[in-house]
Write a protein that binds this DNA or RNA. Structure first.
Lengths: 126, 126
DNA sequence: CTATATTAGCGAAAGGGTTCGCTATTGACG
DNA sequence: CGTCAATAGCGAACCCTTTCGCTAATATAG
């Protein structure tokens, strides 16, 4: 698994689309990403080729039009970005980040229940 | 308070130093940031001037050598970066981030206790 | 099959961040 | 003071990402 990998903003947007809809065409990705912004279709195609180069996505060109799929999972990306964030602004303390997110976000009752369960599990490491 | 503000990597490193030691000199910042890397002192000075321009830091030039202090708080920066992260890779769900950080990080017993307390407080909104 | 539209590829330029060399200013020390 | 060292300032180069125009290849419509 790639160790330190930091997708750029545009790359993240595209990955977001591909996580939701694996096997999307360039056109579909373009429409999804630039629903409101107006960027040229070429830009999206170019970004796809750059990401292909970097190995962030895979292309299936046995079909027409070609389709794309992410090779990095959402989970891996989350992990990489969270640890980067923790390292850089939370002095390496993941729990500090947790506290922060908990108090500033608005978790629902269900969220709280889930987190409580997780906490309980963590308290009995065994 | 500045709404969307995203310090770059180098800027974050410098802010990190200033949060720990407000009123540091350019030399001190340089030494702290580039303890292992070898960058030119001019680079640090230039970055400071850029950050000054952007309003991320403040300069006291009544003293010699001049000293610098962050104008953005660590807390604000954390908030801004966390919400950016949540939005981009956690589909807007802060609790999803919490779960992720909790299970991948290694919280200490004390961390868990604190989080538990916070959770309990959240359960009794009132 | 031909014409038209859509998809694909690529080089180059634009844009922003980072780096540094060079010069000017200020401070320390004899 | 005069010299040498450290601090401060600035433009330009450089690097990486993003953008697009232009051309080629492929699909679709008539």
């Amino acid at each position: 698994m790639r160790q330190n990998f930091e997708p750029t903003d545009v790359e993240l947007q595209i990955l977001g689309v591909l996580w939701r809809k694996p096997g999307a065409t360039a056109r579909a990705i373009h429409n999804a990403v630039h629903a409101q912004q107006d960027k040229n279709y070429s830009t999206t195609v170019k970004m796809l080729s750059v990401m292909l180069q970097k190995g962030l996505i895979r292309r299936d060109d046995t079909v027409r039009p070609q389709t794309f799929t992410a090779t990095v999972s959402r989970r891996t990306t989350q992990k990489s970005l969270v640890s980067k964030l923790v390292e850089r602004v939370f002095d390496g303390s993941a729990s500090s980040l947790v506290m922060h997110a908990l108090s500033s976000g608005k978790p629902t009752k269900e969220d709280i229940q889930e987190i409580r369960k997780l906490i309980e599990k963590l308290e009995q490491p065994k």
